[in-house]
Deep mutational scan, measured.
Amino acid sequence: KMTIRVKGKELARRIAKEMKDRNLKVEIHEHGDEVILEIE
């Protein structure tokens, strides 16, 4: 399990899509400006 902190929703969406393309499970937690992606 891996956690990534990202500034900006646009970048977070791009990373999430990339991870889904690799068949990984992604959970997205938004905290205002910061987005936390949990990847399994």
Rank of each mutant, 00 (worst) to 15 (best):
Gly8Thr: 13
Ile39Glu: 00
Met2Pro: 02
Arg13Glu: 12
Asp21Val: 08
Val6Trp: 03
Glu34Leu: 13
Arg22Ile: 05
His29Gln: 08
Ile4Arg: 03
Arg22Thr: 03
Glu27Arg: 13
Lys7Gly: 04
Lys1Ser: 09
Arg22Gly: 03
Lys25Glu: 06
Glu27Ile: 14
Glu27Phe: 14
Lys20His: 08
Ile4Pro: 00
Ile28Leu: 09
Glu34Trp: 15
Leu11His: 05
Leu11Lys: 06
Lys25Gly: 04
Glu38Val: 15
Val35Ser: 05
Lys17Phe: 04
Lys1Ile: 10
Glu30Cys: 15
Ala12Met: 03
Val26Ser: 01
Arg13Cys: 15
Thr3Ser: 08
Lys7His: 11
Lys25Trp: 10
Glu40Asp: 11
Ala16Pro: 00
Ala16Gly: 03
Glu27Tyr: 14
Leu24Thr: 03
Ile36Ser: 03
Ile39Leu: 04
Lys20Gly: 07
Met19Gln: 02
Glu38Leu: 14
Ile4Glu: 01
Glu38Asp: 05
Leu37Ile: 13
Lys20Phe: 09
Lys17Asp: 07
Glu40Ala: 10
Leu37Val: 06
Glu40Arg: 12
Glu34Arg: 06
Ile36Met: 05
Glu18Leu: 15
His31Val: 14
Glu10His: 10
Lys7Phe: 12
Glu18Phe: 15
His31Lys: 10
Lys1Val: 08
Arg22Pro: 01
Lys1His: 10
His29Tyr: 14
Gly32His: 04
Gly32Phe: 06
Gly8Gln: 07
Asn23Phe: 09
Lys17Val: 05
Ile28Glu: 03
Ile15Trp: 05
Ala12Arg: 02
Gly8Arg: 07
Ile4Trp: 07
Gly8Cys: 15
Ile28Cys: 12
Ile36Glu: 04
Asp33Tyr: 05
Ala16Thr: 04
Ile28Ala: 04
Glu27His: 12
Met2Arg: 12
Lys9His: 10
Leu24Gln: 04
Glu40Ile: 13
Arg13Val: 10
Ile36Asn: 02
Thr3Ala: 05
Lys1Asp: 02
Glu34Met: 14
Glu30Thr: 09
Arg22Phe: 06
Glu40Pro: 04
Lys9Val: 12
Leu24Asn: 03
Ile39Thr: 02
Ile4Cys: 13
Ile36Leu: 07
Glu34Cys: 13
Leu11Gln: 05
His31Ala: 11
Met19Gly: 01
Ile39Phe: 08
Glu38Met: 14
Ile39Asp: 00
Ile39Gln: 01
Met19Phe: 14
Glu27Ser: 13
Asp21Phe: 10
Asn23Arg: 08
Val35Asn: 03
Val26Lys: 01
Glu38Phe: 14
Ala12Asn: 00
Lys9Phe: 11
Val26Ala: 02
Arg13Asn: 11
Ile39Ser: 01
Gly32Ser: 04
Ala16Cys: 12
Gly8Glu: 06
Met2Trp: 14
Ile4His: 02
